[in-house]
């Protein structure tokens, strides 16, 4: 099937089988490998991206279902050299080690905070339990997201 995926404002005209997951299409067909795949069954969250403003698991959606929708991935967060406050906070607070889970956590946290900027600290902890990280023990991810949440509210 011929479809167009609009990723971070750029159109990618691609031909995919209906069974191609959105995660695979973004990575393989559009070459945007910042989105990672860690389980392909919805649990790890490494593939989390934002589609039409909603943070979702891109391994549980077919690429054909995203035809014409606005897709945001980690590659689109920074504005030129200026990092998104969430990226900056992850660096400042050492919210990443191997970096494999990081794009998923960034998109999850940004996706939720854009929808619910005033979410409580407990609510944020619930949200962050959506994704798995094996390196950081979550301590610094939580710190980073709370700090960035403050910055995002200011902006």
């Amino acid at each position: 099937m011929d479809i167009t995926l609009t990723i971070n404002g750029r159109d990618h005209a691609i031909a995919v089988e209906p069974r191609r997951t959105l995660a695979d299409a973004i990575r393989e067909d559009c070459g945007q490998t910042g989105t990672h795949i860690g389980c392909e069954h919805g649990i790890c969250g490494a593939c989390t991206i934002i589609v039409d403003g909603e943070p979702i698991r891109s391994c549980l959606m077919f690429a054909v279902q995203a035809n014409g929708k606005k897709i945001r991935t980690v590659e689109g967060l920074a504005n030129g050299d200026k990092l998104h406050p969430m990226q900056q906070a992850f660096m400042d607070h050492h919210g990443l080690q191997c970096g494999f889970c990081t794009p998923g956590f960034l998109m999850l946290a940004i996706g939720v905070l854009e929808r619910e900027p005033n979410i409580s600290d407990d609510g944020l902890l619930d949200v962050l339990s959506s994704n798995l990280c094996r390196c950081t023990g979550y301590q610094n991810i939580i710190k980073a997201v709370r700090a960035a949440a403050k910055d995002m509210r200011k902006e």
Binding site: T48, P55, I56, R57, D126
Partner: peptide
């Protein structure tokens, strides 16, 4: 609803 899965799964 908040007991069902996780936020991104509840979006879909």
């Amino acid at each position: 609803v908040r007991h069902i899965a996780h936020y991104p799964i509840r979006m879909r």
